[in-house]
Design a protein around this nucleic acid. Sequence first.
DNA 1: ACCACTACCTGAAGGC
DNA 2: TGCCTTCAGGTAGTGG
Length: 273
Amino acid sequence: MPELPEVETVRRGLEPVLVKHRLIAVDVRRTDLRRPLPDGFSRKLTGRRVNRLTRRAKYLLVHLDDGTVLIVHLGMSGRVRVHDHPAVPEVHDHVIFRTDAGQSIHYCDPRRFGLMELTNEKNLATHPLLVNLGPEPQDLEGPALAARLAGRSGPLKTALLDQRAIAGLGNIYVCEALFRARLSPFRKASTVWGRRADRLSVAIRSVLGEAIAAGGSSLRDHRQPDGELGYFQHTFAVYGREGEPCPHCDCGGGVQRVSQGGRSTFYCAKLQS
DNA sequence: ACCACTACCTGAAGGC
DNA sequence: TGCCTTCAGGTAGTGG
């Protein structure tokens, strides 16, 4: 689930739970996420107060009162659940944070592609995980987007997934943005400039903005023991809709699915060029 | 510098 | 019911 809008939704959901609160316990149940949790993870976080919660691309950043910054990535299957009272951990709840307000935050990640790292404010900007990230999509108007795509001979789809070019998009929102912009996923990335780049920029920002707004409306689900995130997918135009009629034309072929770089691309062959 | 491909790990879904 | 294959929102490492 976690692309930029989902991480932003998690950030907003956790803000009232964490900010200005103290971590009174950090229980590590598994250390082997995508990379091992740092040494002394629990000790370094326990007792700290959370000053701010920010986001960079798909990374969640927890800023603590001693200058420590906890970097969290949700990988493919990372989820966060807030419990108002201590709760029995589920199988894939790998890290549990407890706050001085009595709430517990369970970090759940079945595939363990997520990660947690510790750094500090001083080294945050140059941290290896963050230093090569491209700009946030919200900051990229057409010309700036074109500049990020210039010189790239590979397909547009692949370029948009490259976090060094533009940071925060994943497979779903790339498909959706390309459909909105009426651009072919196979088009050479460097051919997107001028009006096409304007269109793509608007499409990216609108699809992310709408997804965040939809996520925001379901934040209360975080609080509920059985609450699942799952809302915006009902509004996908093409993602996961292979074989269904194209929502904006009657091309007959409907939504197609192909594999690009090992990932599924959903698109309409007639509308997107 | 870029690109295609693979690996990491578990679970869900579909075919037989 | 069960076994097998395929696929899934991410990133990083390899070799061409």
